[in-house]
Amino acid sequence: MDKNKLDKLRKRWVIFLIVLVLSAYIVPYMFLNHIEKASGAFLYWIIFALIAIFATIKITNYWREE
């Protein structure tokens, strides 16, 4: 992949991950703090982690040996 394309992809993923991680603080503390159910913060963090896991795997899937 050429450098420009790589840089663009890198930037996009970094921004996506930063937003995702910030949401793991903001959403449970600001929007789910009154929902006393498993479908509140518990579910949100599970979904957050799954997205983070798939994003990380997706980034490693670009790699090639040579």
Binding site: L17, L20, V21, A24, Y25, P28, A41, F42, W45, I46, F48, A49, A52, I53, A55, T56, I59
Partner: peptide
């Protein structure tokens, strides 16, 4: 506690 540990896991990115 779940949020705490899953944010750690997300740090693996």
């Amino acid at each position: 506690a779940l949020g705490f540990e899953l944010i750690y896991l997300a740090g693996l990115s």
